[in-house]
Amino acid sequence: MTQTSPVETVLDRRQLRRKLTRWRLVAVGLAVIAILVAVGRFGGDVGSLTPHIARIEISGLITGDRDTLKLIKSIDESKATAVLVQVSSPGGTVTGSEHIFDELRRIAQKRPVVAVVDTMAASGGYIVALGADHIVADGNSLIGSIGVLFQIPNVSKLLDTVGVKVETIKSSPLKAAPNGLEPTSDAARAAIDALVVDSYSWFKTVVKERRTLNDAQLAAVSDGRVFTGRQGMDLKLIDEFGGEREAVAWLERERGVAKGLPVKEYKKSTVGKPFNLFSAAASIAGLAGGEHFERLASQIENVQGQAGLDGLLAIWHVGRDQ
């Protein structure tokens, strides 16, 4: 019978201890992955699992991009008791604004929605605000600009000046018209005008229904101009002066939202992106000694597309709508 020396016994114990430590790290890592997956299914972080007021920001040019719509839809999977929409936008595409409006109205079927106008909610920004049950704005916030426009630069005269002529072969006279490379025909102008009038009619209908205006009141606010919050109060375009504090107080007072609930901000950077199990596993493998696997995972890059503007616009232009 071979006896193990004390030195070998110590070495064996150290080697066993290293193996146990490595496997413990792997187990801990897998547990972290499981928690992250569970959290990701409920809105992006642990705060989404407890009652709160969800805050989303709609700012800048509105395109109704996929990430923004996913952000709003994610509230349905959370424990949000109410939604606070912070709007600071001059508008954007009519379709993009409509998409956000529709999503907010769907959310409002389950929980109250209040809009807080920061610097402005003009054109498409005001369409977004109309998706809320209550609109709060500062006295100097800009609101309104109820209207639709279609713009295209026409360089036909410039091309004539430099002696350039663009030859176009198309199936019918109104195909791709107007295009800015030739004078706009009366028929093309009439076709685009019909689109603008139709979208404008939809915009006015939304304002009339959401703000409970009669025809005279609607006519007074729908000529494309912007108003201050103070003017908008008299014209029934907003409901209350203030900011987030007043919006939360309205939720508590009028909609029975529990007092003292935390306001949790939802951001596009943390919602709607798939959980990268490969990268997480690579990190765990790195802790367990899999350095080559970790280096491979570090080479993975996420590519995001950029949204562009297309179609009719509901946007406020200084010196044009005003």
Score class of each variant (00 low, 15 high):
R295G: 03
E240P: 11
L312T: 05
W202Q: 05
N179E: 13
L71Q: 10
K73Q: 10
D186N: 13
L159H: 08
N140F: 02
V113F: 04
V32N: 10
D310T: 10
P51I: 03
W250Y: 11
G243C: 00
Q109R: 05
E98P: 02
V226T: 08
A288H: 10
L149E: 00
V28K: 10
P51F: 06
A249Q: 11
S279I: 02
K273Q: 06
E254M: 12
I284Y: 04
R17I: 11
E301T: 15
G224I: 04
V263H: 08
G124K: 03
A282Y: 08
S222F: 01
L174Y: 02
S156H: 12
A122H: 05
D67S: 03
M233S: 06
F101R: 01
E98A: 15
A258N: 07
G139Y: 03
G163M: 06
I300L: 10
L195W: 15
R111I: 00
G260Y: 07
L158F: 09
R245Y: 13
S298A: 15
V83W: 08
L287R: 11
L71V: 00
A115E: 01
T95P: 00
A121D: 00
R225P: 00
L69C: 04
V85G: 01
S59M: 02
L20H: 11
D76K: 11
Y266R: 00
T161F: 05
T205G: 15
S279G: 05
G243Y: 05
G40Q: 13
S269K: 14
Y200G: 06
V318D: 14
V206A: 15
T161G: 06
D138A: 03
Q15F: 07
K165M: 09
R255L: 00
G124D: 06
G40V: 00
L174E: 09
S89H: 06
Q299E: 15
G286I: 12
K110Y: 03
H52C: 12
E254L: 12
S89K: 01
T119D: 07
R41C: 08
T63D: 00
V155S: 04
S145D: 14
E252P: 11
W250K: 04
P173S: 08
D67E: 10
F227H: 01
I53D: 14
S156E: 12
D118L: 07
K170T: 07
R295F: 00
V221K: 01
A115D: 02
A280L: 03
P178Y: 11
Q86M: 09
E240C: 07
D234T: 08
I127H: 02
Y200H: 14
K268V: 09
G96N: 06
N140K: 02
K259C: 05
G272N: 04
N214M: 03
D186A: 15
I35M: 14
L71N: 02
T270N: 10
P183I: 10
I152R: 15
K268W: 09
E244F: 01
G131F: 05
T205C: 07
Q299L: 07
D310V: 06
T93Y: 03
A38P: 00
L213G: 10
L195G: 09
K204D: 11
K273P: 06
G260W: 05
L296Y: 01
K259R: 14
A177W: 04
L36F: 05
V196N: 13
R225G: 09
V128H: 07
E265D: 13
K19E: 07
K259A: 14
D310N: 13
